[in-house]
Design a protein around this nucleic acid. Sequence first.
DNA 1: GAGTTTGAAACT
DNA 2: CAGTTTCAAACTC
Length: 944
Amino acid sequence: MDSPDITKTKATASPSSESPPVQESPVFSYINSLSPIKIVKATHVVQGFPGLSSPPLVFTSPRINPYSETSFLKRRPQHSELSSAGIPKTQDEGKKFADGPVDPEKPFTQLQLGLITDTRDCNTKNFVETHPCSSSGLVDKYLADSTEVDCVNSDQSVNPCLEHSNNVPESSRSGLIKSKELSLTFGNKNDTATDSPTEAQAPFMISEQAQEYIQGKQTFSAKPTRSKKQRDDELPFNECKHLESGLSVDNAFRREYHQDLHDQGLRGEHQDNYDYSHQSLAGALQIVRVYEDENAGSISNRLVENAVMHAPKRRCLQFEETPPCTSGKGDDSLSLSEKVSNSEPPTGTVESEMVESSYLELSAASMKRQMAASLPPRSTGKSCLTVSKPSGIGLHLNSIVNAASVVRGATSIKLADRYMGVQPMNSASVNVRRCPNSLNVVEKDSAGAVDWRNETEASVAASSATTQSPHSVEFEHHGLIHERRIADSYSADSYEECNQSSPKMKRKRALRNIDSDGCKRCNCRKTKCLKLYCDCFSAGIYCDTTCACQECFNRPEYEDTVLEIRQKIESRNPLAFAPKIVEREDENQFTPASARHKRGCNCKKSMCLKKYCECYQANVGCSNGCRCEGCQNVYGKRGEFVDVDPVVAEESIPNNADTGTRESTFDEKLQMVATRKDSNDSLNLTPLTPSLQCFDDMHNVSKSRALPTRCRLSPQSDLTIISHYEKSTRSPQRNSENSDNLMDTSNGVLDVGSYDWQVDYENIGILDISSPRCDAVPTACHTPLSGTGSMAVASSASSTTRDLTNVSQVHLRPGSHCLLSGSSLHWHSSPVTPMPRLGGMKSFQDFDSEKGHHNVLQDETPEILKDTSIPIKSVKVSSPNKKRVSPPHSRDLGASSSGGLRSGRKFILKAVPSFPPLTPCIGSKASSTIQNMSNLLQDKDRKK
DNA sequence: GAGTTTGAAACT
DNA sequence: CAGTTTCAAACTC
C-alpha cells in the first residue's frame, strides 16, 4: 500500500529534474498564458508533471467552472491574504508540514510541499486550493503559484483555501467554494481549451501531490506528538486546509464542508467533525490516492474532498468519543492531512479498485463536461464513482465507507440519513454495515459526487442525496455499515450518545445500534479489533465511534497496522476476509440454495438454530462443509445442501423450472425460518424487503414508489438481499409487502429478469433521484470491476450517463458507474439503458438466483457479464445477519449480494459481477457482483 | 445490566 | 491436523 505512494512521493521528490519539463510542458505554458500571475515556482509544478502520464481525456475532469474565471483573480489576493495573514496557525502548520513530524523528514516534506504546489499548478484548482489551506509558509509561496495556476485554471480554487484559512464568512466561502468547484470541475479550462496535456496531467499532478502530501503527512503521523501540535494549532479550517492540500479537495466538497460548517456555525462542531473527518479523510485520502494512481486525480480529489468534508461533520463526535481509537497512534493530533497520509497505505491495496472507480469518476467527469453544467450546489451525493470498492484485502472498507459517508453526508442529510438509513435500514440495515456495503456506499457517494459536478444532476443529486441519503440503503448495503454507523452516530439518539465518550455509553450505543440498525458494532476488548473476532475488522471496516471496542486499532490512524495484520491473516488464510457466505455456482449451475457458508459451521449445541451458527446467522443452509451436530438449520440442513451445491446446483440450475422447484423447497425452508425467526429476523428480513421492493418497483414500474424504500432495500440487496430475500420469501409475515415482492421475485425471478431491466431503467431514474443509495450502488459497481472493465465502462458510462442524464442525470451517473464497475460493457451498449439495466441486471440477478436468472442475465446482459468474464462462482458475501459481512476484500467482492440465498441466487452473483445497478438494490448487488466475481475467480483458482 | 453459553478464531 | 485456549457475540436471566 504504502510503497506506491512512497514511490510516487519520491518521484515527486525529485522535482528539480522534473520541474523544468513541467514548466516547459504545453500545459504549463498554457496555464502561464492564462494566468495573469506568473508562476514563480513553476519548478514545483514541473515536478509533478513529469511523473504523471497524461491521463486520457476521459479522465480529465469534465467540470466546468463558470465561477472559476470570475473569481480567479480576486481569489488570489484573498488567498494570499488569508494564507499569510489570515491564519498564522495555518502557516505554522504549513511549516510543520514542511518540517514534517521529524526533522529529517522536514526536507522531504518541504519537497513534497513544493511538489504539491507544483502539482497544484498543474492541477490547478484542486491543488491550489488544498495547498493554501494546508501549509502556511510554504503553502503561501506555493500558493502564489497555485493561485497562478488557479488563475489559469480557475480563480476559485484559491478562494477555498482562503476560506478555510480565514474562516471567511459562509457566504463568501460558499462563493469561494463554488468558484473552486468550478475550477475543479475544470480542469475545465484546460479541458475546454486543451484537453490532453493539462487535463491528463492535472489529475496526475493532483494525485501525486496528494500522495506526497499524504506521505508527508504519514511521516507526520509517524510522529504523533507533532501531529497533535498541529492539530492543536489547526483550526477546523486548518484541518480543512490539510485535507484540501493533501487531497486536493474538490470545490464541491469544500463547499459542502463549508456549508456544513456554516450550518453548524460552530467551530466546536468543526473540531468534532474534524475528528470524524480523520477516518473519513483517511478513506477519502485512500480513495484519492487510488485515483491519483489512476490519473483520476481530479475526480478522485473531489470525491475525497467530498468525503472528507462530509466525514468530518458526521463523525466528529464519534471520533472524539472513542478515545482509544483516536488516541491510538496520536492520530488525534494529526491534522487531517496526516490522517490522510495514514490512510494512504491501505489505499494502496485498494488502488486498483480505486482506479476503477476513478475511471468511473472520469466518466462522470466527462459527463460533467458535457453537461457543462455549473457545479451543483452541494449535492451531497457527489458522484461516488470515484470510490472504488474496497478491494478485498488490503482495503479497509471503512476508508471507503467513510469517504462515501462523508460524501453523502451533506450536512443536512446526516440526521435524515441516520434516521432514514438507520431506521429503515434497521431491518435491512444489517447487511449494509457489512464491509461490502462500504463499497456501495462509496459508489453512491461517488455517484453523488458526479451528480455534483453536473449542476442539473447536482441539484437533483443533492436533493436526492441529502434527502435520500438516509434512504440510501445502498450504503447500508456495503458501505452502509459505515454510514450507518455514522448515521447512527448522527441520529439524534446516537448523536447525543456519541458525544458521550464513556465506554459504557459506547457499548450501549453499539448494542442499540445493532438492535436498531441491525448493524453491529464490535465490542472487542482484548483483540484491539485486529483479529477476526472483531466483526468490524473481519468485515474490512474500521471501527467507528459507535463501537464499544477498547484499545481499538482498527482505525484509519492505524491503517498500516491494520493492513499488516490483515495481510498476515490473509497469508494464513487467504479467505479469511472473504465473504463467509458464498453461493456456489458453477458457471451454468444455479443452485437455488447455493448460498452457503464458506467454511461451514461447527455447531454442536445450537443445532444451527441460533445465531451462534454462522450459517443460520447468514440465513444460509448448512452444507456438507459444515461439521455441525444435529443440524436443524431452518435454511437448510446439512445433508440437503451438500448435494445441491456442487452437483445438484448444476442439475437444478439449468432450467428455471429447476430453480423454481428449489425455490419452492427453499421457500418452504424460508417459511420455516420465517416462522421461527420472524421475531428475531425481522431485521434481517427487512433487508430482504428492500431488495424485494426494488424488484417490486421494477415490476410495478411504479416510479412513484418511495424511492427511499428501495434505497433501503437496495442496500441490503447485495449481501443481505439473499438472506433477506430468502427470509422475506420464507416469511411473508415480516414483509407483507416485501414478502409479496420477494415471493414474486423468487418465483418469477426469471420473468422479472427481462422485465426488471426495463423497470429498472425507469425505476433507476426514480430511485437515483430519490435515493442517494441508488447512487451509491452504482458506484459500488465501479469499485469491484476490474480496471479494464472499469475503463471501458467508464467511457461508456460517461456516454451512457449523458444519455441518462437526460432522464435522470443523477441516476444515470450512478448507473454508469455501476456499469463501469460492473464491467458490464454490454450495458453500455445502450447509453440510457445501461444504467437501468445494470440495476435491473443486478436486481435481476438477485432474483434470478432463485430461478434460472442466469439465463436471463446472460441473455439480456450476458455479454457484459461474460465480458466480465468472471466466472462467478459467486461467493456472496452478503451477511444476512445484521452483522457486517466482510465484504471488502477483493476476494470478497463478489460475494456481497449473495446473501446466502440458496435458491438460485447464484444467478445473482453472476449477474452481480456484471454491473452495479443504479437502484440501491441494484447497486448493492453490483458491488456484490463484483465481489462475487472476485470470489468466483478465487473459487476457480481454488478448484484448480 | 450482568452473567452464561456458544462457537469461531487463534494458538499450540 | 487436532486439541486447547481465547475471544466476542449471542443468549439468558
